[in-house]
């Protein structure tokens, strides 16, 4: 109690301290995210129009109101791209999360061998850049370089077409699965390890099978981790870009605006329509935001309902 004057100092300090710690992040965040986002929103209301007539009249940037938003929302290709991404997500997200959960549970099975090796092996693709992963699978899909096709040929079966309509979605989802399953597996596995074993010791003594323990005890307990990985998968899915973009030159079935981000890239970098790209991005970001909030709310009620 003698430290009354000294006690004031920490309080004074702590008012400014968090801001000092956060300053580098705030400055960089402002410079490289807030300002560019603000500028992008500004751009989304602007477009190029011709100044001074003639066939080679110069383009100048002017205010175009909601034209860009209207164009994005009424563009059938953009809307179709959103649809394709959702369809792709229906394949990819459950398969990535399902397999990640399966591997995590298997790794968590008592007495299983080669745990370290398999865990590392399954995680390894995470280190392979998305573009390289796509290029590599592209080679594995193309008829003349595909090992599956080589085998099919040996068996006198026809060439397999990995790029034809429904198969294409699986081919793309497979790349996501390959790259993403390890990362998600590690998250689920570590949260499995965080469960005190005492919780299912009792069940084991009662003679419960590992399958039963997994289904009834482990999965409910890792549900929060599943929701989190699911949420990031949804965000990642809606921002799908490098896989279809890398495979596009190899196939005739992937159009140049196959997913929303390809469309945005196209407008921004090929068609010199930054305004249109910005508007389409704002629409996409808002869509992701709304979807994430809805999912979070839905699952929060279900997984944490009892506690919250």
């Amino acid at each position: 109690m003698t430290a009354n004057p000294a006690g004031r100092r920490p309080r004074l300090r702590s008012a400014a301290t968090p801001w000092l710690f956060a300053t580098p992040a705030i400055v960089l965040f402002t410079l490289f995210l807030i300002i560019p986002i603000g500028y992008a929103i500004y751009l989304s209301f602007r477009g190029f129009r011709i100044d001074g007539g003639g066939a080679f009249g110069r383009r100048v940037q002017t205010f175009v109101g909601f034209d860009n938003y209207l164009a994005a929302l009424t563009d059938p290709e953009y809307v179709a791209g959103l649809g394709r991404v959702l369809l792709y997500g229906l394949f990819s997200i459950p398969s990535v999360l399902g397999l990640a959960l399966l591997f995590a549970l298997l790794l968590d099975t008592p007495r299983v061998r080669a745990r370290g090796f398999t865990r590392t092996a399954i995680f390894l693709p995470y280190a392979v850049p998305g573009v390289i992963a796509s290029l590599l699978w592209g080679f594995l899909y193309l008829p003349s370089t595909s090992p599956l096709n080589y085998l099919a040929k040996q068996l006198h079966a026809g060439p397999l077409d990995f790029f034809s309509f429904p198969t294409l979605y699986f081919s793309l989802a497979n790349i996501a699965l390959w790259s993403g399953v390890g990362f998600n597996m590690i998250i689920i596995f570590t949260s499995l390890r965080a469960i005190p074993t005492s919780i299912y010791e009792a069940a084991r003594i009662d003679g419960a099978s590992e399958l039963q323990i997994a289904w009834r005890i482990k999965i409910p307990l890792v549900a929060p981790a599943l929701v989190l990985t699911g949420l990031f998968s949804v965000i990642g899915t809606l921002q799908l870009y490098s896989e279809p973009a890398t495979l596009r030159p190899m196939s005739t079935t992937i159009s140049s605006t196959w997913v929303p981000l390809m469309k945005i890239y196209q407008e921004a970098f090929m068609n010199d329509n930054l305004g249109g790209a910005a508007a389409a991005s704002v629409v996409l970001a808002l869509g992701i935001l709304v979807l994430s909030m809805l999912l979070l709310r839905f699952f929060q009620r279900r997984t944490f309902g009892d506690n919250a």
Binding site: L99, L102, F103, L106, L107, T109, P110, R111, V112, R113, A114, R115, F117, T118, A121, I122, F123, L124, P125, V128, A133, L136, W137, F139, L140, P147, W178, V181, G182, S209, E210, L211
Partner: peptide, 25 residues
């Protein structure tokens, strides 16, 4: 209890193979 880990191992090894094959490629 006796059989499960072996099945688990096989599934895990298949998973490892699936993940390593393209790297080997």
């Amino acid at each position: 209890a006796a059989r499960r880990p072996r099945l688990a191992l096989i599934v895990l090894l298949l998973g490892a193979l699936y993940c390593l094959a393209p790297v080997i490629w």
